[in-house]
Computed example of a mutant assay.
Amino acid sequence: MDNVLRYAKLMFLCLGILTLTSCEPDDEATFDDLVRYGWAGDLGFSDKYGEPLQSGLVLDRDGFGVDDQCYFDDLNHVAFSLQVRWMLVDGVLSLDYGNGYPLLEIYDVYIYGDELTGILYVDGVRDGPVTLYRY
């Protein structure tokens, strides 16, 4: 009886470990979805007059990409094009635009269908939920 109880405890421990590891974000699958498509949405950029800009991210497999920014009322005209370095680690998408721009991080990146959702942090400060749309 003592061996059965010990075996049952071991089985529950193994089951718990498998359950916890299956809840981790799958960075490999997310990575593949990120680089396959362009992603557009509001990442908080604006022009020198304060007019908001929509970001159009295209991320390459090598960790570099481009953010073509457009005015919301004229999405066919690129106002600015910024180079970006990016990485995805443990479900956090980091976007580094270089000197003069804050580090953007999207925590809890989740891609479902044509939407990428997460929580946007700007230089480590929580900005709020963000949604990017596949194009």
Rank of each mutant, 00 (worst) to 15 (best):
G98S: 13
E105D: 00
V92I: 13
R85Q: 05
D74K: 09
D68T: 00
G50C: 13
V92S: 11
I106M: 03
I106E: 01
I106G: 05
F72I: 14
G50Q: 09
G98A: 10
G63A: 02
L53M: 03
L75P: 00
G91T: 02
L103A: 02
S55A: 10
Y49R: 15
L57S: 05
G41W: 02
S55D: 08
L103N: 00
D114Y: 08
Q83N: 14
V66T: 06
D108E: 11
G50K: 07
G91H: 06
N99L: 12
F64Y: 10
V58Q: 10
N76F: 12
L53C: 04
V92K: 13
K48T: 15
V78I: 12
L57W: 08
F45S: 03
L88W: 01
S81H: 02
Y112C: 15
V89Q: 11
L59P: 01
G113P: 05
L103T: 00
D60R: 01
D114T: 09
D96R: 07
R61M: 03
Y112E: 15
D60K: 04
V92Q: 09
Y112M: 11
D60Q: 03
D62T: 04
G98L: 09
D90W: 08
D47P: 13
F45Q: 02
V92G: 06
P52M: 04
N99F: 06
Q69W: 10
S46W: 10
D90R: 07
Y97C: 12
G41A: 02
L104D: 08
H77G: 12
Y97L: 07
S46Y: 11
S81K: 08
G44P: 00
D90M: 10
G65Q: 11
L75W: 14
D68H: 04
Y49Q: 15
P52S: 05
Y110T: 09
G41N: 04
I111E: 02
L93W: 01
R85T: 02
P102F: 03
V84W: 02
L82M: 10
G65W: 04
W86N: 00
D73H: 15
Y110C: 06
F80R: 10
E51Y: 10
S94A: 11
F80I: 08
A79T: 14
L53A: 00
F45N: 04
V66H: 01
Y107N: 09
L75Y: 13
M87G: 12
D96W: 06
G91Q: 04
Y71T: 05
V78F: 07
Q54E: 13
G50E: 10
F64T: 11
G65D: 09
L95K: 02
F64C: 03
A40G: 06
G91K: 05
L82Y: 06
L57M: 10
Y97F: 15
S46H: 09
E51A: 00
A79Q: 15
L95T: 02
R61D: 03
N99M: 04
D62L: 03
D60S: 01
Y112I: 15
V66N: 01
D108P: 06
V109Q: 04
G63T: 00
I111S: 05
D114G: 13
P102E: 08
P52N: 09
E105G: 00
A79N: 14
L93P: 05
V84F: 12
G44N: 02
N99C: 08
L43Q: 07
E51C: 00
Q54V: 13
G98D: 12
D67Q: 03
